[in-house]
Design a binder for these strands. Structure first.
Length: 513
RNA sequence: CGGGGAGUAGCGCAGCCUGGUAGCGCAUCUGCUUUGGGAGCAGAGGGCCGGAGGUUCGAAUCCUCUCUCCCCGACCA
């Protein structure tokens, strides 16, 4: 046993679910709201989401996609138009039926029966239908295409079982919606968005992902093809971190998105949609968190450096704060990742040593503590969140001069960013097995007592219809799902794990969130 | 939505079985001491016990309903 006294009470290896919840609250990210499945996202958690928004939004705009905003409410008749879409979402819709409340005579309020809506409105679970409606008006000619739109919005899906950030009834996301002249162009856009998500996940979130196509049974309701990026959490489970769909002409047919082509005839547009949500914050926690709380990759940290003066409530505080303020200014003048460093001087009274653990739990990448002796020596005490523990179970402080510290920070933050990615990538590759060639071997690999089973990449022959259903059922008995067909996998060279027929491709099989 | 568990101070919990004016630890505030690594001592503040009904002289405690959270399952972009 180590002498380390961790900042959290739950250990990942003991109870991963309890640990996850402790991080969410101990890192001050979010809390329950009293409304089923809905959470309050607190400043530190929302600050991380805002960083995600900023970095992903830049990538979206770089691709020539424009932001717009569409209504929260969708007329029921509008939503009804695409059959598969309806079937996929109808079970989890919030519906608005009245527009006024009246007193119930017992001190409460009830919906006014006189104020019933002629047509109910549904709260968007996603916006294909209402954006399709707009597109049908905006698209008249081939010259109007491609139409590339995105919106940052909240959506509501009445989930039966919710978990903070991972599956909430209301969540925040961006949804891209594009319309194109033909299938090829739409497919190119589908893959562009997918690659954008991969780059965002790996470069900004430090989250290694596997890019691939979802099997038929996992497709978005109404899609022709669904693609995903899949990430491995520290308990070995998979999390879908972003998806991109080629919708064919399904939604164009439903919404009547037609245009006159170059030859003068009417054509249906081919559309795509792609989304990434606050679920990514959950992925961040379960990938980079440790037994002392969250570790935020510097690219996403609302504050990359936190300065903690050792205040004593005496005459020494003034000069010390002055020294820290100068340090803050010097650091803020530095750049990392092409942006000014985000640095906070935490002036709250109280011992630095006590406040330190707040910032450790929140996962600020670098903590700089400064005491009177540091000031006299022109130094600081620096602590990296990714190398928290030093010798003897004590925090691993370093003591550079103030100038050295400021100069070292940009490189240090870049190192932390890539270090977090490398750590996650190593863990993932260590936990993907590729040598399973029978269903029995698969069962054994995912036996109940295996705490961290990881993922299996196996070969199959891409069955469809009832044959696929049978495969899905067999996997379900092992609590497994097909995550995707990785685009980077080796070609098949053996037999299908399920049918014994010659395999056509490799799939990723895992337990999932 | 089915099975199980839980809601009492900011956080973690005891009290409930056997009804009698609400308690502990941490945190907070005040004072003194301490002062380079998650301080010590003393004192203080803070809760209509998730909510609504009911039983009772009296309900955190017993009964009914309801809301929310957690775990397992079903469902699931």
């Amino acid at each position: 046993m180590s002498a380390i006294r961790h900042a959290l009470t739950n250990r990942r290896e003991d109870d991963f679910a309890a640990w996850y919840q402790e991080v969410v609250s101990a890192a001050d990210m979010a809390e329950e709201s009293g409304v089923r499945g809905c959470m309050v996202i607190k400043p530190w958690g929302y600050g991380i989401w805002e960083r995600m928004q900023r970095l992903l939004d830049a990538r979206i705009k770089e691709a020539g996609v424009q932001n717009a905003y569409f209504p929260l409410f969708i007329p029921l008749s509008n939503f009804e138009r695409e059959a598969a879409h309806v079937e996929g979402f109808a079970k989890e819709m919030a519906v608005v039926t009245h527009h006024r409340l009246i007193a119930d005579g017992k001190g409460g309020l009830i919906p006014d029966p006189e104020a019933k809506l002629e047509e109910p409105l549904v709260v968007r679970p996603t916006s294909e239908t209402i954006i399709g409606d707009a597109m049908s008006r905006w698209v008249q000619s081939w010259r109007d295409l491609p139409l590339l739109l995105n919106q940052w919005a909240n959506v509501v899906r009445w989930e039966m079982r919710t978990r903070m950030f991972l599956r909430t009834a209301e969540f925040l996301w961006q949804e891209g919606h594009t319309a194109h002249e033909n299938a090829e162009n739409a497919r190119v856009e589908t893959m562009r968005a997918l690659e954008m998500y991969r780059a965002f996940a790996e470069e900004d979130v430090a989250l290694p992902v596997i890019v691939g196509e979802k099997p038929e049974n996992e497709r978005f309701p109404g899609a022709v093809e669904t693609w995903s990026i899949e990430a491995m959490m520290q308990d070995g489970k998979a999390l879908q971190a972003g998806t991109s769909h080629y919708l064919g002409t399904n939604f164009a047919t439903a919404a009547n998105i037609r245009f006159q082509d170059r030859e003068g005839s009417q054509q249906l547009a081919h559309t795509t949609s792609w989304g990434l949500s606050t679920r990514m914050v959950g992925a961040l926690i379960m990938t980079h968190g440790d037994d002392d709380g969250l570790r935020v990759p510097p690219q996403l940290a609302p504050q990359q450096v936190v300065i903690l003066p050792m205040l004593r409530g005496d005459d020494g505080d003034g000069p010390l704060l002055e020294y820290c303020e100068e340090l803050r200014g010097t650091i803020a003048g530095q750049q990392a990742f092409g942006e000014k460093l985000r640095v906070l001087l935490d002036r709250r009274s109280g011992k630095a040593a006590a406040k330190r653990w707040d910032w450790v739990r929140r996962g600020a990448p670098v903590i700089v503590e400064v005491g009177p002796r540091d000031r006299e020596a022109g130094k600081v005490s620096m602590l990296r969140r990714d190398r928290l523990w030093g010798e003897g179970g004590k925090p691993g402080f370093e003591a550079p001069t103030r100038e050295e510290a400021a100069q070292a920070l940009p490189g240090m933050l870049a190192e932390i960013q890539s270090g977090l990615f490398d750590e996650a990538a190593v863990r993932r590759s260590r936990n993907i097995t590729r040598d399973i060639d029978s269903f029995d071997a698969l069962s054994g690999f995912f036996a109940e007592d295996r705490r961290y089973p990881g993922w299996a990449e196996v070969q199959w022959c891409r069955p469809t219809g009832p044959a696929l259903d049978a495969v899905v059922e067999r996997l379900k008995a092992l609590k497994l799902t097909i995550r995707n067909v990785p685009v980077d996998a080796e070609p098949a060279d053996g037999a299908c794990l399920f049918s014994g027929a010659p395999a056509t491709e490799r799939i990723l099989v895992a337990r999932a969130y």
